[in-house]
Design a protein around this nucleic acid. Sequence first.
RNA 1: CGGAGUGUAGCUUAGCUUGGUAGAGCGCCUGGUUUGGGACCAGGAGGCCGCAGGUUCAAAUCCUGUCACUCCGACCA
Length: 536
Amino acid sequence: MALSPPFPGDAHAAYGTLTPIYRPMAQQQAQERNAISPRRAENFPEWYQAVVTAADLAENSDVRGCMVIKPWGYAIWELIQQQLDKKFKDTGHSNAYFPLFIPLSYLEKEAEHVAGFAKECAVVTHHRLEVGPDGKLRAASPLTEPLIVRPTSETIIGESYSRWVQSYRDLPILLNQWANVVRWEMRPRLFLRTAEFLWQEGHTAHETEQEAREETERMLGVYHEMMRYHLALDVVTGRKTASERFAGAVDTYCLEAMVQDRKAVQAGTSHFLGQNFAKASNIQYLSREGVKQHAWTTSWGVSTRLIGTLIMAHSDDDGLVLPPRVAPKHIVIIPVTPKEDTKAAVLEACDKLAERLRAQSFHGEAIRVQVDTREVTGGSKAWDWIKKGVPLRVEIGPRDIAGSAAMVARRDRPHKSRDLIAWDQLVADAPTILEDIQSTLLARNQAFRKENMVPMDDKDSFYKFFTPRNSGRPEIHGGFALAHWCGCPDVEEQIRKDLSVTIRCIPDDPAIAAEPGMCIFSGKESAQRVVFAKSY
RNA sequence: CGGAGUGUAGCUUAGCUUGGUAGAGCGCCUGGUUUGGGACCAGGAGGCCGCAGGUUCAAAUCCUGUCACUCCGACCA
């Protein structure tokens, strides 16, 4: 097998013929059977659900909006956690834990914050159960002050900070917590929008505005790097408009990923909170000049939504496709044991190869290898791992033992393409192949994003861009529209009403949108283009 | 919270208009034959047809109520 060079300068160029992400139905080979039904092009939302089920990532709970994250899905989250946690520590942060329950009165302290979250809070009003006259359990003993289940923790952490901070010498405070939060969602969707979700929330307090702004940008950068190099997502970063800003923030920065139906997913946020929460929570310090000052705070977070983004960005009509750096297993070895008398030899060869592969490292960690010894036929084993998105599948049968070779299949290539590779070569090349899969996925996401991020210079084409031809069952359409906007919230609101399209961000990359122009809706002046898109 | 729809086995569902012993596929269990890309044959387990009332000799089927879920809007990481 000819291997592509590791880390090609332009990975996209190394793959002149990319596997098309969508193929028109007419070109689909009729006899070709996919693992996932429907296909992406047929019904994207249903395809997404089918991938989650087929890859055994999660399932819905009886509690509406809540999900059970199954081992394979949780392992992906753990890998994301590990990578991020290291980065947080490297940038000077420590982990801590703050309570799940927040007194109602805390939330009331910041007016915009209340307005933003009040409609989606779970409220705890009682603290015991008793048996009612009908024999059923009912809530008893009302709380004097109701508690809310945290939708985010700015207020309760601010309460602590107000006690911890006395002097400029107490600053900065750089904390993070890994936690669950609850936002009572009307329309849940596994991983993307659930009533309860797992996330991390960083909360920092600083002496100066500049320090806090630097922190906000630093953490945006940490997220950017993680999404690009671990999740293989070519995200667009930028600032939110006033209407999309975090409730109570001065500035919200975000990372917007484009997934395969060309919609945007907000994959992470970093907020500069100014002194708003410091004033609300009374976080004050005595400055170097002996003057009482409010601290400057930030908060930043990513959630299990990243997994949903990952699925929608990379997976195909055969199921999940995982970038190796977040794959719970890098390689699965499937013993092909057609006859009893050769079975032991095959299994032994598989175990030996697994050991040799485990001794290799990929990004400073031992390669994660599993030998699938389940008592089912080889074909269904292979399909299971295709659906689970394992980057490399290795099959060893009796005939391969003589030649010390194995059939190797890459998940980023069509499921029928397999190569016979000698064990020695596979062991030596495994890290390179994994790296190549990683960069191929990034290159594909980047090519797709570039292809579907288009400048729009008049209102008509803008509306046409976001209007499906088939309104009954909308086909995949639209993308990221780069258009000039005058900054007027009314214009933004009108577009949202007309097309369900919002400004995802004001991009910070001058290569994307620096030049001034004229708002295509109002004709007024505009300093730069902004990104419009439909979103999750 | 508005509009539409659906509740039958672990999952997907047929049957409902015209009331008469609840059927299939997948999955699961057992045995056998198989095995280099989703095996086949035989046998088996599994259902108060969402729940409560009503009509009827008889209700998955008709009527009323209720609960849950899904989709489309409004809201959101």
